[in-house]
Deep mutational scan, measured.
Amino acid sequence: RDEDEKEKIKEALKRGNEDKAKEIAKRANVSPEEYERLRKEAE
């Protein structure tokens, strides 16, 4: 379940949809550090 959320965040970031990614991260309680890591992976 947690991994699904992280995949959704990465997908949103790949599409350049940072607002959606942040919204998912907030809902999934993803830490800022984890969010940054996902953002780097998505580049």
Score class of each variant (00 low, 15 high):
11 E>R: 05
12 A>S: 08
33 E>C: 05
16 G>C: 05
15 R>D: 15
15 R>Y: 09
31 S>A: 08
39 R>S: 10
9 I>V: 07
39 R>P: 03
2 D>V: 15
15 R>E: 15
19 D>R: 11
2 D>H: 14
21 A>N: 01
12 A>L: 10
40 K>F: 08
42 A>R: 02
35 Y>I: 06
18 E>A: 09
16 G>K: 05
32 P>F: 10
5 E>H: 15
17 N>C: 06
29 N>Y: 04
10 K>Q: 00
20 K>E: 15
40 K>Q: 14
27 R>L: 08
1 R>E: 14
14 K>S: 09
15 R>A: 15
37 R>D: 11
18 E>C: 08
42 A>D: 03
35 Y>S: 03
39 R>H: 09
31 S>G: 12
37 R>A: 10
23 E>I: 08
40 K>S: 12
28 A>C: 11
21 A>R: 00
31 S>E: 08
40 K>E: 15
30 V>P: 00
4 D>W: 12
9 I>N: 03
23 E>F: 00
18 E>S: 08
31 S>I: 04
3 E>C: 10
42 A>K: 02
35 Y>C: 04
34 E>G: 02
38 L>D: 02
29 N>L: 07
8 K>M: 12
24 I>V: 06
2 D>K: 12
34 E>R: 00
32 P>H: 11
39 R>L: 11
23 E>T: 07
8 K>C: 07
37 R>K: 12
11 E>N: 09
28 A>V: 08
26 K>W: 00
19 D>Y: 04
3 E>F: 12
31 S>V: 05
41 E>N: 05
25 A>D: 01
26 K>N: 10
30 V>T: 06
1 R>W: 14
4 D>E: 13
24 I>E: 04
25 A>S: 06
16 G>F: 04
17 N>V: 05
20 K>Q: 14
28 A>D: 05
42 A>V: 14
19 D>A: 14
22 K>Q: 12
30 V>K: 02
35 Y>K: 03
40 K>H: 13
31 S>F: 04
36 E>V: 00
2 D>T: 13
12 A>Q: 11
10 K>C: 06
19 D>F: 05
36 E>G: 00
7 E>Y: 07
13 L>Y: 00
26 K>F: 04
32 P>V: 10
43 E>S: 09
32 P>E: 15
20 K>P: 03
18 E>W: 05
24 I>W: 00
25 A>C: 04
41 E>S: 06
26 K>Y: 03
15 R>L: 14
13 L>K: 02
6 K>G: 09
23 E>L: 04
40 K>V: 13
